[in-house]
């Protein structure tokens, strides 16, 4: 394995403590869609956008996937390269990744398969006026 193998950030590991915008603490595996929406409503800088998965290109040999999203009402095209086990939060569904078996194995985070058409929670900056 390469010595510079990338790893996921620690907050996706099951049991990690997450602070919502109102100060409430929850475990990462207990987060609900409403927690993100309500936190964004409180935030002065961030807003929730809907990002629809349009395409997933991945391979187990590289451990990476390129996920193409259509973001927000203007349907801007954004592509991100992530580890296969990187979890995204799908509206009304919860954590999902390109390879949920790896996510469950590495993070113990309950996870479903990310699919084309899924609508993920993402963030953008609020318009500052």
């Amino acid at each position: 394995a390469p010595s510079s193998a990338p790893s996921l950030p620690p907050y996706f590991i099951k049991g990690s403590i997450i602070q919502l915008a109102d100060g409430e603490l929850k475990r990462v595996e207990d987060l609900k869609t409403e927690d993100f929406i309500q936190s964004a409503e409180i935030s002065s800088e961030l807003k929730i956008d809907s990002s629809t998965v349009e395409r997933i290109d991945g391979s187990h040999t590289s451990n990476f996937a390129i996920v193409q999203f259509s973001v927000g009402e203007h349907r801007a095209q954004v592509s991100v390269e992530v580890l296969l086990e990187y979890p995204f939060f799908v509206f009304g569904q919860g954590w999902s990744s390109c390879c949920p078996d790896r996510t469950t194995q590495l993070l113990e985070l309950p996870c479903t398969k990310l699919s084309v058409g899924d609508v993920c929670i993402s963030l953008t900056l609020k318009n500052l006026r």
């Binding site: 950030p9 620690p10 907050y11 996706f12 990690s16 403590i17 997450i18 602070q19 919502l20 915008a21 603490l25 990462v28 987060l31 927690d35 993100f36 936190s39 935030s43 961030l46 929730i48 956008d49 990002s51 999203f69 973001v71 927000g72 203007h74 801007a76 954004v78 991100v80 995204f88 939060f89 993920c120 929670i121 993402s122 963030l123 953008t124 900056l125």
Partner: peptide, 19 residues
């Protein structure tokens, strides 16, 4: 025990400003 802010869990996808 570390406490992480909620927004660190969400990818920041900034659409390009086209209009």
């Amino acid at each position: 025990v570390p406490v992480f802010p909620w927004h660190s869990l969400v990818p920041f996808l900034a659409p390009t400003q086209s209009d």
